[in-house]
Nucleic acid binder design. Structure first.
Lengths: 222, 222
DNA sequence: CGTCTTCTTGATCGCATTCAACGTGTGTGG
DNA sequence: CCACACACGTTGAATGCGATCAAGAAGACG
């Protein structure tokens, strides 16, 4: 499953645009991505990891039958592109307009000459990734649509911290691919939450939690 | 969810039996577990990790509604108990009679005075754990019972390497808790594989692959 | 030999998928 | 500014797969 077409490795696509980070303390190299743009694809050599400065990224695998499985969403402070292998095992794509800080993997590995100021330890990143992976597994292993969507709304609300109105940056398709549900089931479940007064949705891409207790109950003991 | 009852920390239960590893190069400390015995429970302080010498271990979470979710099975060469946190996030239990080599977590973290001979790098263990977690996610996110069970049989056959007859060390319940299926569905699916000649089962706890191609097809592009 | 656990099979039900159609919003060009 | 097109979201009806409830078979063990 190595989809390394030439275009993928076009200059400025497989690493930070322009200057390479070969100095001692790597200057903050930033990449901008518009919604829908691809950061890297499965099979590509993994030389950088990226700290999300703003926006939302997603990582996914494409299965042979064409189905997409989104393994995680990343927002400000998260690190994308750390898979622990020489080649990326997943594809990363911008959900919204994104600002990324590029970090040579050597820096995370603590190789001499690549020390970081505020070093995100590779181990820490891997641990948080593992935790998130397990969290998702729990969400999809034995829970029904209501519980999954409720869990997802909680996931979004946790990120938005104090915000009243919580935005939904990703499409229904993305939510489905993350929760292992069809787009229709996601819709229906949201509609049901609206109908029963658990949430209110000012727009299709935002919501306000009306009944915290009911949402917790819907999530069903997580 | 901290289930740290007193009995759990009884001597010889929360660490290697008898002598503690406080010397420089830790002598091989081994623990034996009978099938069904618990190695550690969720919430317990994580001070050791364990290399499986022989037998099969499982790690699982217990959800509030009583459902068990088995996140992984471990056999010879695998490491149990590395979660990256100060407390175990899961419970580990012996599936079969097990022999384990106890490794102080300090050794994996590379703390001075705790160097190992053949050091399993913490990063490597975490990476393999993450890979396995993702593999399981893929198995349960959008695949039907047939594909999941086929994938599980492949998982078992990969471990048994060259063996003709592959043993199934875990119960149907365990398989179900791992695949996110009920015990009945696991049974029915296995029966269907037998009926259609994909596998033969000399006993309920072993199988022989009769039609490799059909098993691959059933797994459905993984 | 009997008891207990594990495994298997059967019948029914409910939830999520599928297929299909209809709204809604957004952006582009006339 | 409006008209149109296109992507995205929502709703409806029917189907099918896996869960559930229930009971029976097969091992394991004392």
């Amino acid at each position: 499953m190595i989809s390394s077409s030439a275009s993928v490795f076009a200059p400025g696509q497989s690493g930070p645009a322009g200057r390479a980070a070969l100095g001692a303390s790597p200057a903050t190299i930033v990449r901008k991505l518009k919604a829908g743009e691809t950061l890297f694809v499965e099979g590509e050599p993994a030389r950088y990891c990226y700290e999300v400065v703003s926006g939302v990224m997603k990582e996914y695998c494409t299965l042979e039958d064409g189905q997409r499985e989104i393994s995680d969403f990343y927002s400000a402070g998260d690190f994308v592109g750390v898979c622990g292998h020489d080649e990326q095992t997943q594809t990363a794509e911008a959900v919204t307009h994104c600002l990324l800080r590029c970090i040579p993997l050597d820096a995370l590995l603590g190789r001499p000459g690549f020390e970081l100021d505020g070093p995100p330890k590779l181990v820490d990143v891997l641990v948080s990734r593992l935790d998130r992976s397990r969290e998702r597994s729990t969400l999809i292993s034995r829970r029904n649509a209501e519980q999954r969507v409720a869990g997802f709304l909680r996931f979004l609300s946790r990120r938005s911290a104090d915000a009243q109105t919580i935005s939904i940056p990703m499409s229904r398709q993305d939510i489905g691919d993350y929760l292992g549900l069809t787009i229709e089931t996601v819709c229906r479940t949201l509609t049901e939450f609206k109908r029963s007064g658990v949430i209110v949705m000012p727009t299709a891409r935002s919501f306000v939690i009306q009944d915290e207790a009911a949402l917790d109950a819907a999530e069903g003991a997580l």
